[in-house]
């Protein structure tokens, strides 16, 4: 299988500091893949190596099967990149920036005019087309940066912290736009240190101190952190006699009784499979269940759990 991005044993030293430590990364075609981790975890270094902006100390990167070290130009032709901080020419206007980058990606004549027009409309930049990029507001700058990254209709979009220091409406706009792009078949690799945002990703890799500590779907990572899903039940005390014997129940995490009602948190292997049978089984034994639900675990909790003692 050809991955959109396939990094193998990718390593980067800065002097004696190991910024990225032998990571393996596989981004599937057409998914939104998140590289999640705190500042300094090595996310930017990783994507810079994917783009050939940094030379890996060891390891290889392939983008759609093309080795970046050997054929960087082919990779760049199908890849769009939006850096973490605004990197366009502030002394050129919105339109001049778009036209410049369209030309650099080889667009010419009418194709170029059409594409620039499309992007001006798509990202609501038309009213700012003659304004210097340096004089745009933060949100408009971000939209322009995304437009430039997409000017050549790339198959892979790499976005570094698109939402850092950006207002909530624009953050939401970005994620909606990423989902739209995914529908069009674009693969998106996005880094973020906002754990709540990462829930939007199809799959994630959790980075810390240059290493990938976990990867999988957001759900999968949470399961990995806790060893399963957490289910919360409000029921009778008697339930404790039976709970442990049910299929899929791993352990009872905590319990307390209030006004004769038992509140118990149970770790199960898969909440969506087990929740209904558990309630059913209890009721068959004559135990009343007042409420049963899956406990929402944040990725942040999962991250902390996974990196504790690291």
């Amino acid at each position: 299988m050809i991955y959109a991005v396939e990094a193998t044993k990718l390593t980067k030293y800065f002097g004696s500091f190991k910024a990225v430590d032998s990571i393996d990364l596989k981004v599937r075609k057409g998914e939104i893949f998140g590289l999640l981790g705190p500042n300094g975890a090595g996310k930017t270094t990783t994507i810079r190596m994917i783009l050939g902006l940094l030379k890996p100390s060891a390891g290889t990167v392939k983008v759609f099967g093309v080795d970046v070290a050997k054929n960087r130009k082919e990779v760049l032709k199908i890849t769009g990149y939006m850096p973490q901080r605004f990197s366009l020419y502030e002394d050129l206007t919105t339109e001049e920036n778009l036209r410049l980058f369209a030309s650099l990606y080889g667009l010419k004549g009418r194709d170029l005019d059409e594409r620039v027009g499309e992007l001006l409309d798509e990202f609501q930049l038309r009213e700012y087309r003659y304004r210097l990029a340096g004089k745009l507001s933060g949100g408009t700058k971000q939209r322009l940066a995304l437009a430039v990254a997409l000017v050549h209709k790339p198959r892979l979009l790499i976005v570094d912290e698109p939402t850092a220091g950006v207002d909530p409406p624009i953050r939401r706009y970005f994620w909606e736009y990423f989902r739209k792009l995914r529908q069009e078949g674009v693969t998106i690799l996005v880094t973020t240190h906002y754990m709540d945002e990462a829930e939007n990703c199809d799959r994630l890799a959790l980075m810390n101190r240059g290493k990938i500590v976990a990867h999988g779907t957001p759900q999968g990572i949470k399961r990995l952190a806790y060893g399963g899903d957490i289910v919360e039940l409000y029921t009778e005390r008697r339930a404790l006699l039976y709970l442990k014997s049910f299929d899929g129940v791993k352990t009872i995490l905590n319990k307390d009784v209030k006004d004769g009602v038992l509140r118990v948190k149970v770790l199960v292997d898969d909440a969506s499979d087990r929740l209904v049978p558990i309630v059913k089984n209890l009721e068959e034994k004559g135990v009343k269940v007042l409420r049963a639900n899956q406990v929402f675990v944040s990725l942040e909790d999962a991250f902390i759990k996974l990196t504790v003692g690291d």
Partner: peptide, 13 residues
């Protein structure tokens, strides 16, 4: 220094 170099060199030039 203005970081425009980074955006410039991810184009196939």
């Amino acid at each position: 220094e203005r970081r425009t170099f980074e955006q410039l060199i991810v184009t196939p030039i």
